[in-house]
């Protein structure tokens, strides 16, 4: 089980850049998340036995059901007691418990490089700048924190965790693993500086699904400032592969409020044209567009049965994340009982 405090002191594995994990995973966040276990709402297929139900029913300790014997079935699974009483051949099926494969998809597009909160205030470590030297706590920094937290939870409960950083395509991929040092590898990979390219979630999803063979819990962390249709396409493919997904939308408070004063020139981080305007004059229309887009993304996520959670860069990550996971576990338990 990885311990970030220890991991921070431990030397990095060969080929892994040195990174201070505490930059992205605040101790308070870890304290909040320590008591929660990440449960896939869907049954996932794991290679190691864990706390998650597997869709593969087979040999396990927890009886599931009987079914008539069919040619080719393992005769070791015949329930002889039933055969003795009813002279019929039934095979016992058991619910298989498996490990969770968590794949965290972090949006590394240009728009994630925006942040209006000071790094020193957000990191809680006393550092004033990020690894890249930025003074602001960007959405990517916040996404990194969410990814670190989610992978930490997964690895802590013995599941495997993987990572994909993407923009218009996959930029960095770490295959899912439960080995020691996996969390550090993930965090080191997250130190990648975002690029100024637009997001192509569908393409990145295709690339990820091509590499993942078993069913996974996909944690997509992005601002989702892309075409909703592309999001729908990506999620549809994930759903088609029977993956579960959690969508974390990282939003900077300034983006949500758009409270600027005088006329300003705005320059897009993904190569959009420069535009000079009075923010006050378009604020209403902006917020309407923003809200409409967010609602649309949320609606798409919900339509596939995926969870959707907004996290703000100005908010502490621990409380909302803990609340979200707790709520999710409660939903899973309810499904399980039902």
């Amino acid at each position: 089980m990885p311990d970030p405090s220890k991991a921070a002191a431990a030397p990095n594995p060969p080929g892994v850049a040195h990174v201070d994990a505490t930059l992205y995973l605040h101790p308070q966040t870890l304290a909040r998340l320590g008591s929660f276990e990440l449960r896939a709402k869907h049954i996932v297929e794991g290679v190691t036995s864990g706390m998650h139900r597997s869709p593969y029913q087979g040999f396990s300790v927890e009886f599931a059901q009987h079914r008539p014997y069919a040619a080719g079935d393992d005769i070791r699974r015949l329930d002889w007691k039933v055969y003795g009483r009813s002279d019929k051949l039934y095979v016992k099926q058991h619910q298989q418990e498996t490990n969770l494969d968590l794949v965290v998809m972090v949006d590394g597009s240009g728009s994630m490089n925006f942040g209006s909160r000071l790094f020193a205030e957000a990191s809680g470590t006393g550092r004033k700048t990020s690894v890249q030297g930025g003074e602001n706590w960007t959405k990517f920094d916040h996404a990194t924190a969410v990814a670190a937290a989610m992978s930490y939870i997964a690895l802590r409960q013995g599941d495997r965790a993987g990572l994909m950083i993407y923009a218009d395509q996959a930029l960095s991929v770490i295959r899912q693993s439960g080995a020691q040092g996996q969390w550090r590898q993930i965090v080191s990979a997250l130190a990648t500086h975002p690029v100024d390219k637009p997001t192509d979630l569908a393409r990145a999803m295709d690339q990820l699904l091509a590499k993942v063979t078993n069913r996974c819990l996909l944690v997509i962390i992005s601002d989702f400032y892309t075409d909703p249709q592309a999001i729908r396409t990506a999620l549809a493919r994930a759903k088609h592969k029977r993956h579960d997904a959690i969508l974390f939308q990282v939003v900077d408070r300034r983006e949500a409020t758009f409270d600027f004063g005088d006329e300003l020139p705005f320059v897009g981080l993904e190569g959009e044209p420069r535009v000079r305007l009075d923010p006050r004059s378009i604020r209403k229309a902006y917020l309407e567009a923003f809200q409409s887009h967010q609602s649309e993304v949320q609606r798409i996520a919900r339509s596939f049965g995926f969870d959707f959670q907004v996290v703000g860069t100005h908010d502490w990550l621990g409380p909302p994340l803990a609340a979200f996971i707790a709520r999710r576990n409660a939903q899973i338990k309810k499904l399980k009982v039902g």
Partner: peptide, 8 residues
Amino acid sequence: PVLWGAMR
């Protein structure tokens, strides 16, 4: 100029 993410 303001570098803006939600330019769309």
